[in-house]
Design a protein around this nucleic acid. Structure first.
Lengths: 190, 190
DNA sequence: GTCTATACGGCGATAGAC
DNA sequence: GTCTATCGCCGTATAGAC
């Protein structure tokens, strides 16, 4: 039951969620612990009960985004056809075009930033795209593309990530929409 | 003659170059004015003679990267065939795979970071990809792709940017090499 | 134009009462 | 577990001598 959740868990969740949102909107580096605390309705000093250091917050952000991606894949896996699963992935990406044009891809921009953060966070962020890429490859293999499933997955993920980067840079949702439509056509021709 | 360059110009150039390098390696936000000064062999206080504020350094970085891209296009424009120009662009991108795997795309990572910087710098960074994209579109049009030159340019730039983002994230130069090889083949089939 | 010294503010982190 | 108060550091920016 929801009522069974203790207060500590709820507060940690709120802090994490605020950190994830703020990191997406203005970047992790730019986001202060005071902002995260304020957005969560938690006093600044109390943050350190849940996170020993600022880097710990970064870890929580990364693992939250990984969980989100994994959960999304479980959704798509309920579709019977692998091609339909990939199409659903593309569609759901395009559906966020407005958000992407404002703040960039939640995973792509996080990866780029954490890689420059260096140290522990850079290492952790290197696994951000591993699961999604493997999932895509599995779908292509299930479609019968035995030999080039890896290449196709790379091509699809790179196209989407690049389109999202340009969508953000130009602040134009239509860029992602155009590339998404093209990729849907490309997928059906395979 | 090189000797004619005055000291002031030389110092500003050194500061700008150090800022550009450091921003690429560790991000603009993470780079301090003290680091830029130190790397240039200039005392910290003297930085403010050349740049009024830290944001001014950001502007100089952006305009330096734009100049580099424009200069590269001039190089490629000396090739007689538009298809060869685009191939040269792809090749020169792939040639930097090692650097990209370590620090990301000089323009892509800068754009992503500056967009989150907000304010003036975010606005300025929105023009980073405008010239390259228009240049690519012109090449495709010269190749006879009258109707879909814009789409093809977008497709090419997005594929490269996405491939570089993943190359950086996975720390694997081979990703960019694979996508580059595929794009060369794709280009020749158009 | 160049450089030193320093003011100022903000952020991460801690101490310690409750 | 929760919260207030505060420390210490670091980064931007300025003052002012040379």
């Amino acid at each position: 039951m929801a009522a069974r959740r203790n207060v500590a868990g709820s507060k940690r969740e709120r802090l994490t969620q605020a950190a994830v949102d703020l990191a997406h909107r203005q970047g992790f580096r730019k986001t202060t612990l005071a902002e995260i605390a304020s957005e969560s309705g938690v006093p600044l000093g109390n943050v350190y009960y849940y996170f020993k250091t600022r880097d710990d917050v970064g870890e929580a952000i990364l693992s939250c985004r990984e969980d989100q991606a994994a959960q999304q894949q479980l959704q798509f896996d309920q579709l019977p056809e692998p091609r339909a699963r990939l199409a659903a992935f593309i569609d759901s990406t395009v559906a966020n075009a407005a958000m992407v044009s404002q703040y960039g891809c939640p995973m792509g921009s996080l990866s780029a930033e954490m890689m420059k953060e260096g140290g522990h966070l850079a290492e952790l962020s290197r696994s951000l795209f591993a699961t999604p890429l493997a999932w895509m490859e599995a779908q292509f293999r299930a479609m019968g593309c035995k030999d080039d499933a890896g290449d196709l997955a790379l091509q699809l993920l790179a196209s989407l990530q690049g389109a999202m980067l340009l969508t953000h840079s130009f602040h134009e949702p239509s860029i992602l929409q155009r590339e998404g439509a093209r990729l849907i056509g490309w997928l059906e021709a395979i």
